[in-house]
């Protein structure tokens, strides 16, 4: 009988021998460190550097205080997330960010949720109580808003909210459990399509409101951001 560990050991061998110079790993590390330090410095200028470099979701405010909300433009209407009209519900002030090179604002955060932080590719919401203490790179138990180059698979149903059409479907998470996911049908968000990924048991209707509340700046009466 062949031992599994032995088989795995043999399968782990490279198909072809290769050598990656350590210098390239150091160069990538230094670049990431520079981006991180720029982000820690906070402010519009630092965020703008990240946007141009990563092409992902970057909030235009300090990374040191991700739970705080940037003030909205003075002319922007403000209601709370507990509005009786949840589809139009807004946070006290929207988050402003960029998907790719395109700025937009996040107007809806479900009751009981808050922004944990962001990566160059995604904005992450966590539950205000009982959320796992993991990094923003880990989406387990969280809601992630992302810009994707590809639309969601053509499964599930199409729903319209606030005049915008979204696909509402279910995908499998790492442990195989069903996870609700919302995706825009039109590629108008940064790299292309807006994707809001929930966690197991999340309310798809709430995710839909998040997607509808993620508005390219200049739309829905909000000011365009530079």
């Amino acid at each position: 009988m062949t031992d599994l560990a032995e088989l795995l050991d043999r399968a782990a061998e490279p198909a072809a021998a290769h050598v990656v110079p350590v210098d390239s790993d150091i160069a990538r590390g230094r670049a990431a460190l520079r981006r991180r330090r720029a982000g820690m410095a906070g402010g519009v200028c630092a965020a703008a550097l990240l946007v141009s470099g990563a092409g992902g979701f970057v909030i235009t405010r300090s990374a040191a205080t991700p739970e705080r909300v940037a003030p909205a433009a003075a002319s922007h209407p403000t209601t709370t997330a507990r509005s009786p009209h949840p589809a139009r519900a807004r946070t006290a002030a929207p988050f402003r960010g960029s998907l790719g090179a395109r700025p937009f604002e996040l107007h809806y955060v479900p009751p009981g949720w808050k922004v944990q932080g962001w990566t160059p590719e995604s904005l992450v919401l966590v539950h205000t109580d009982g959320s796992p203490h993991t990094t923003v790179q880990d989406f387990e138990g969280k809601i992630a808003i992302e810009s994707a180059a590809q639309p969601l698979p053509q499964t599930g149903i199409v729903r319209t909210l606030d005049g915008k059409r979204f696909r509402v479907t279910t995908l499998r998470s790492a442990d195989g459990s069903p996870t609700p996911v919302i995706g825009s049908l039109t590629p108008s968000y940064g790299k292309g399509y807006l994707v809001v990924q929930g966690t197991t048991g999340a309310d798809a209707a709430e995710l839909l409101k998040i997607a509808a509340g993620t508005v390219p700046a200049g739309h829905d009466g909000s000011p365009a951001l530079g």
């Binding site: 043999r10 050598v19 790179q137 992302e146 998470s173 996870t179």
Partner: peptide, 29 residues
């Protein structure tokens, strides 16, 4: 954890940021 996280977003096109290492053509046993 990075692998598991990436697998959760499997529908997304995976962007290539690095170049493939040079292969020497040595066949695997």
């Amino acid at each position: 954890t990075t692998f598991i996280d990436e697998s959760r977003r499997a529908w997304r096109r995976h962007e290539r940021t690095g170049s493939l290492p040079a292969e020497t053509g040595v066949p695997a046993p």
